[in-house]
Design a protein around this nucleic acid. Sequence first.
DNA 1: TCTGGGGTCCTAGGACCC
DNA 2: TCTGGGGTCCTAGGACCC
Length: 418
Amino acid sequence: MKSLDKIIMHIDANSAYLSWEAAYRLQHGASEDLRKIPSVIGGDEESRHGIVLAKSIPAKKYGIKTGEPLVSVRQKCPHIVIVPPNYYLYMQCHNAMLEILRDFSPNVQVFSIDEAFIDYTGMEGIHGDPVSAANKLKNRIRDELGFTVNIGVSWNKLLAKMAGELKKPDMVHAILNEDEMREKMWPLPVEELFGVGRATAPKLHRLNIFTIGQLAQADSELLRFHLKSWGILIQNYANGIENSLVASGVRPPIKGIGNSCTIPFDVHTREEALKVLLSLCEMVGMRLRQAGFCARLVSVWLRKTDLTGNGHQRKFLVATDNTMKIYKIASELMDELWSGKPLRGIGVRVSELVPCDVLQLSIFEKYDEKKKRLDETIDSLRMRFGSNAVFRSCFLGSGLSPVSGGVIDGFQMMTSLL
DNA sequence: TCTGGGGTCCTAGGACCC
DNA sequence: TCTGGGGTCCTAGGACCC
């Protein structure tokens, strides 16, 4: 029997985008609840962003999956309701949820737009035992915000997350000792384990590992041989072993900044490709400057119409946050990379970030000072008047956006590690 | 069936240096 | 002239998360 020296909760909004839209519509007089009919949140097919971002439970019964193209969604369910995404609304719901979580613990880690961990250790005096507290929390979110969450309770983040997945929606599940862990986790298909994805699952199947329990008890050396260190990591997960901290407060430093886009039409000419590349560099550069970093590495990724792709990367001689310097290297990379076959998507990312303030003092020529001031001026105009307030003349009449890619302001994504 | 956009980490091979 | 071994950097590619 394992006593809980730590109490971790994982909170996950059920079908987040869809529930949030449903709640919003009900609050604004809609008579129909999207959650109760076959419906999905989906991107715009015209601009080739037509995939499922979230689905209702009735939609799931038609075999509709997240990430699936809307074309095949309609084949499975012709009367499906498709709603476009509204990221501004999602951000508001995200923030509202966090505010309630902070009433239950000062130690809150945002894991994604719809998921968070809290460390409940030592809080029993205020809200009671972990499971009743989780129920209180779940009900408060439902009653105050109009959407449901699942909450998992256990002694580490991995098990809290796994527990929360057991049955949905609007449920609290706890894994409070090792016997319970084995009983609840081990019979599950191995692909339900955090860390076992599209590529790892078939490899495990070939090793005759089909359940989490079989992974837990497999020969470690066999796993190491076939899956390297990843094999050991997921075997530990299968045994409930994981001890990362709930990292609230100071966010981990960002490692890179990237933007990519699927272009509404296939790009055939270098001229068009360069414009898309520039618009991405504009956004990457702006975000980089906003974050106060200079980058030492830039990478470019091209995706062809057959959906395959590849990338190239190169280091700067001197770290920079200048849009045109990023663009110059990025365009060289693109030229080296591109075979000339039509492109569906392009991505740019910078990494190996260093704080800029140190560099600004170093031996920059006047020339660079001017560039820097130009970037700053453009940034501030775009922030005040929108991203199309100022743009390079090559975008005139091109049908392409002068700045492309984007993130929800102030939001940081999760990782594949806990 | 023709599939987004944002991230992170790990591994492997080659170049280069001592 | 031929031959080692260890370390680090660079680049490409693959894997995972939501």
